[in-house]
Simulated assay, not measured.
Amino acid sequence: MMKYNALARIIRVLLTLVICLVSFTCIMDLGSYLFNTKRYISTSGGAAFGDTGGPGTYLQIGMSVSIPDTSIWYKNGNFETRSKTRYFGYDKFDNDRLNNSVITKKIANTLVALDKENEITVGNDLMMTGPVLLKFHSKNKIDNAFWFFYAQIRIYAVILLLFFLIKLVNIYLKGDFLCKRSFKLISFIGILLISVEFFELVCIFINTQIIPAVRLETKALIGGFSNQGGVDLHFNFGGSVNFPNIGIGIIIIILSKVIKDAVLIKLENDLTI
């Protein structure tokens, strides 16, 4: 029991440190938004803590990358990309195009596995299941305010989750974990996880009205247009909801209720005996 108590105390200290760190970041972000102060702290050695970039708010956004098998440039300035995995009869179509048109440049894109025997082939289809972070800043102050408070609420949700966990650790250290309060806290954690994702859904709808999508455009400053072999990089707000969190939240709520009822039945049976 003493072993677990020591581990619980270490976890409580770590959770408290994380809360302090995240809270300090929130304070710096709030100061930067309201008073235009720095969002980072620098040391005499040159190290910096915080966001050292320009103005803006980091938002979660889905990312998709498309790498074509072949990129073709024509003399009249047209450009196209082809992929064997996306077009049936690609080889025949491509050969006809080559025979009847003037090609100025053709580039093949291949992902290569660095194995010893070269027996492994890698497809160009990419799939990313999680969101990435992009910083957004607008000339519209309402947009900036919405993005700022959206990001802050997500951080406050993390702080609240850590606070609930610390409360659970404290109950455990008191030796009375199987009580009403602990099951209520566990239910709150499940509700919080679900609420954050539904909040994310609402914010996604608003963000798609402000920014339907983001796409990488590459322009050469010297020597004409260049598009890096036709690699297509898209961002949109459809992939930032963590649906597994909703399922986990529901499971946590159900388990807390089931275990609570089981403990109450056991206590009633013990009293009857």
Rank of each mutant, 00 (worst) to 15 (best):
A113M: 14
Q152A: 10
R154H: 08
D94A: 12
K116R: 06
V169R: 00
N118D: 09
I166D: 08
K167T: 02
M127H: 08
K167L: 15
L161R: 01
S138E: 02
N99M: 06
D94T: 11
E119C: 11
N109A: 09
G175F: 04
L134Q: 01
A113N: 14
I120E: 01
N109Y: 02
I107T: 13
Y172L: 13
K105I: 05
N99K: 15
L165E: 03
G130D: 12
F136V: 13
T129W: 07
Y156I: 11
R97F: 04
D125Y: 08
V102M: 14
M127N: 05
F148L: 05
I153L: 12
N170T: 03
F149P: 03
F163L: 15
L114V: 06
R97A: 05
L133Y: 08
N124K: 05
V169D: 00
A108W: 06
D143H: 15
T104K: 12
R97W: 00
R97T: 07
D94I: 04
R154P: 00
A157I: 09
T104S: 15
V132N: 01
V122Q: 05
F177D: 00
V102E: 15
N95A: 04
M128L: 14
D176E: 09
I166L: 04
F149A: 05
D91G: 07
I142P: 03
N95F: 02
F149M: 08
Y156L: 08
R97G: 01
K116T: 02
I155G: 00
H137Q: 13
T104Y: 06
F163V: 14
G130I: 10
T121K: 07
V112L: 05
D125N: 13
K141E: 15
S138W: 02
H137M: 13
I159G: 01
K92P: 00
A145D: 11
I155P: 01
R154M: 08
L173Y: 01
F177R: 03
T104P: 02
D96P: 01
P131R: 03
F136S: 07
F164I: 10
L134C: 02
V169K: 00
N144H: 10
K167W: 03
K135A: 05
Y172T: 10
T110K: 07
M127T: 08
F146A: 10
L173T: 10
A108V: 12
N144G: 10
L161H: 06
V169P: 00
K106G: 03
G130Q: 15
L134A: 01
D115V: 10
V122E: 05
Y172Q: 04
K135Y: 01
L114A: 11
D91C: 05
L168I: 14
F93E: 12
K105H: 10
F136I: 09
D115I: 06
N100I: 09
D125S: 13
F148D: 00
K92D: 07
K141N: 07
K139E: 07
I103S: 03
D91H: 06
T129L: 09
I159R: 00
G130S: 11
F177A: 04
Y156Q: 03
A151C: 08
Q152K: 12
W147P: 00
F163E: 11
L162G: 02
A145Y: 09
N109V: 13
L111T: 07
D115H: 14
F93I: 11
F136C: 09
V158N: 00
D176M: 12
D125K: 06
F164S: 02
K141R: 12
D94Q: 09
I107C: 03
V112R: 08
N140K: 04
V132A: 02
D115G: 14
A157C: 09
